[in-house]
Design a protein around this nucleic acid. Structure first.
Lengths: 341, 341
DNA sequence: CTTAGCGACTCAAAGGTTTTCATCGAGGAG
DNA sequence: CTCCTCGATGAAAACCTTTGAGTCGCTAAG
């Protein structure tokens, strides 16, 4: 019987060529210890001779594992995807998952429709687990996903109870303290803060860091901060408001680089020199932004690549049923000094 | 026999509940015409009562189709992924594929390692087809993918022979002509061009559009154009060179918005007013860039969402073995006027 | 009345892998 | 020399769906 019909070789073919049974060949592929050195070598030789590749569907059928994980971004505002931060996270996810040889199924959910589809998909057992990016308050995706019997690792703290949830967060509060202390150490007296939208915990954490580093009460905080919505335009407007409200301000900590770029525009328009009149610190350390503002932006670095890598590692442990030491990890942030402060 | 053990229901369960055979139930799910109205209704009822979802692996095993397609970005320079264009394409892909209910498997290839992995994966039959974004000259990915027995649709023209290849391109040349003619219609006499890297066909097409609209020979073209590498910094430098070489220039067509942002910086530094002294037209119409430069950028719009949508449609046709009218589609570009020209 | 044709359906095979269980042989202990 | 143990192996079941071949009951044609 000629083998070389153009079909892909099966495990049966490999076994035949190696002179063993399908079972043994399978054991070799799955690195089972109970197999003799000779068999192992014979099978490996056959595999590479035939260019054999396991049929994923067949394997999935019997093992009940797909070898794929979903990467889910939940974000009601479509525009946020123009944020370079998003591209960075995706890239990091693609790399980290490829490194452990699992398929990355990308899902972007904006609308309730998307949400329903995502739910169906995740519930359908089409992936082994999921990485979820859902920063917003009361995001339905989170409450829905939480109920699924599916290993999930979150990026940052999702809103609501954290009981039993697995997540990898950046030390937003610590970074904010870092930024604020730096401004204080420069001798600045009137420091204000442009925050992110307060329906995201990362924004709240940064705000809290500012508040505690400044030893402010709620009233003082309200006076010295303004929501910039994590957009460039929002940052610009927030900065203008703050300039009007606190004319003597000599430093500002802005909760994202994108907003900081907007804030710088506003400061320039108001005739303020940076950093002489007003020192500015951003957050994210997004090189494509931070290095191209004038002056280049001092910023708090949160390493997204690292975050995603940890998320993937964590998820893989869950999938292997290993026990994880800590369900919730916190990654450090550091200050990167440039010229704006 | 109690059904409610926590396992997911199978087609067998559905059939039993509907009082038909597995085969009939399957036909209902696959919208086969040969099934009575009563059976159809009974099965549908059972499906929704049980919350049944077909087991993808089992289906894939027998149909030899996975219900997934790969979306492949080949790009040696990792930094390009900070380009918002990338995020936009991904988003468009996610949406278009979700709409036709197929899984999107994202693959980013930078290194030869990635390349080998991608090849293995695509050859392994783990997806039904692929969307390939590989703009660079002599990209190995393209020559490798071309040999695979796998339906592929390219974004833009890949380098090399186009014979038999399926692709959806933007009318780069036409857009460049549009931009250049617009500058001419404003009465500009000395028009120059900042091109993209000439190892990308989109850049070459735009250059050619400029060349023909200006009726230039090769020598003239060389004098009036400069490569900006599709980066902001490159755009800035290219503009400076051109200012030095052609001091009297009064207009510039820049082959991407990102480069145009850099060029504007360079022009400002040189003390040129835009558009009074120098009119500027970009390419891409990237709102997050074009609307935030000063002045806002007139730009040639290429609709990436549309492009990706067409790519997906085209691929789906290939997958259904439909004949496609034209293997290579060209999408129109339009000029969006703002203040820079 | 017989038979061909047809529509709706059921039966069972096929698809490729993992894994349990049984088998086989070799080597050590008694 | 026999009995056990143990490691390597093979046979076969199981995973769940699609689909071609065959069955059954009817109607229409002869």
């Amino acid at each position: 019987m000629l083998v070389s019909n153009h079909a892909r070789p099966t495990l049966e073919d490999v076994a035949a060529r190696a002179g063993v049974s399908r079972a043994t060949a399978s054991r070799v592929l799955n690195a089972s210890p109970r197999v003799s050195p000779e068999a192992l070598e014979a099978v490996n030789a056959a595999v590479s001779a035939l260019g054999y590749q396991p049929n994923r569907a067949a394997r999935a059928l019997v093992t009940r594992r797909t070898g794929a994980v979903a990467v889910l971004f939940s974000e009601p505002e479509p525009k946020i995807f123009d944020d370079p931060h998003f591209a960075r996270l995706i890239r990091a996810g693609a790399r980290a998952l490829a490194d452990v040889d699992v398929q990355m199924v990308l899902m972007l959910v904006h609308s309730p429709d998307d949400q329903a589809r995502a739910h169906r998909f995740l519930a359908g057992g089409h992936v082994d687990g999921a990485l979820v990016f859902a920063p917003h308050r009361n995001d339905e995706v989170v409450s829905v996903v939480k109920k699924l019997p599916l290993p999930v690792v979150y990026a940052g703290k999702p809103w609501g109870s954290l009981r039993g949830m697995h997540l990898v967060d950046n030390d937003n509060e610590g970074g904010a303290v870092l930024a604020t202390e730096h401004l204080k150490s420069l001798g600045r007296k009137k420091i204000v803060h442009v925050s992110g939208p307060l329906d995201e915990l990362s924004a709240i954490d940064r705000l809290n860091g500012f508040k505690s580093a400044m030893s402010l009460d709620d009233k003082g905080t309200a006076r010295l901060t303004e929501d910039g919505g994590f957009t460039r335009e929002g940052g610009r407007k927030a900065m203008s408001s703050l300039l009007a409200r606190v004319p003597a301000l000599d430093a500002v900590f802005v909760a994202s680089d994108l907003m900081a770029a907007g804030a710088l525009e506003s400061l320039h328009e108001a005739g303020k020199r940076v950093p002489e009149d007003v020192a500015v610190v951003g957050f994210d350390d997004h090189v494509t932004i931070a290095e191209h503002t004038s002056p280049p932006l001092t910023s708090v670095r949160q390493d997204s690549d690292e975050q995603v890598k940890h998320m993937v590692e964590h998820l893989m442990k869950l999938l292997r049923d290993e026990t994880v030491k800590r369900k919730q990890q916190m990654l450090p942030t550091v200050l990167v000094r440039r010229e704006s402060a």
